[in-house]
Structures are given as C-alpha cells and as structure tokens.
Amino acid sequence: MNQVKEIFIIQDRCMGCHTCELSCAVVHSRSGNLYEAMAEHPRPVPRIYVEALSSGKPVPLVCRHCADAPCMHACIAGAIRKTPEQTIVTDPDKCIGCWTCVMVCPYGMVGRHPEEQKAYRCDRCPAIGEPACVSSCPTRALVYRSVDDYSKNRRQTAARELSSGEGG
C-alpha cells in the first residue's frame, strides 16, 4: 500500500536559514518564480515558519494535517476538508475569514492572509510531488516520508549511532 507521506522535522539539523519559507512562498505565488513573486499582489506568504526556541535555536513548524483536525470540525463555513491523500485543505472560495480555525488550531499553524482576508495553510504541494520546503532545505532538516518509513529510518540511525559510540 502506498502510505501517506508527512513532513517531518529534524530540529537539530535546522540552521535557521529560512530557505523553506522562501521556497514555500514562491511555489504558492501566481508566477511561481522568486523575482516576479516579490512584486505580486496579494503578497505571496509562506505556510511554514522558522521560529526561535528560548535557547535561540531555530525550529521549522508546519501544519500537521491532524487525523481528526480541529480546524476542519470547527469551521463554520464548511471550507475545510480532508483529501483522499489525507491532506487538510482550506477552500479559499468558501472561507469567510471568521478565524475560527485560527482559534482552535493547537499548533497555531493556520495563517491569516492580511490582504485576501482568507485562512491559509500548508497543502503539502500536491502538484509537485515533494513539498518545496523539503526539497529546498540545504541541511535536510525536513523530510517527506510515511510514518512507518520515517520511524524505521530513525531506529536504524539510532542503532548506528549507538553501535559506533556516537549517541552516548
């Protein structure tokens, strides 16, 4: 079975370069290229956010596409649905900008577009196979894999580190 892929964050690999934010904004712009995107209205916005922890270390954050997504159930306009690929999407034509989704997302991952007055979020770039944030990350702090595949990989990495004495 072709398992659903998710964007995983390997926090200690992130160096805070914000390339993921830039490539996300560009891929969601009208023109799809950086130079034209900079002059576009409405302004292209990223759907992934590199924030700073209290220690100063950077961490990229993005919509988790929750299995039982609170935003989808809370929406008073029926604008949010789950696709067969298990992606939670907001239909901008149906969104009325009431911000109920912003109020209930426990991760704070629903954006409010200042010009369009519509909610937006990560759509996992359905048109290009691998999300732009993942393919553009220079340190591979973001990976796009199925849960099973990712956890297997993490187990193997941990085992390697332990056997070579690096993990202790």
Partner: peptide
C-alpha cells in the same frame, strides 16, 4: 493580531 490564538487556547 490573532495569530496562533489556538496555541493559547491549548
């Protein structure tokens, strides 16, 4: 400014 209001709700 209402960004991340749901995080505060949590």
């Amino acid at each position: 400014r209402i960004e991340k209001a749901g995080l505060y709700r949590y």
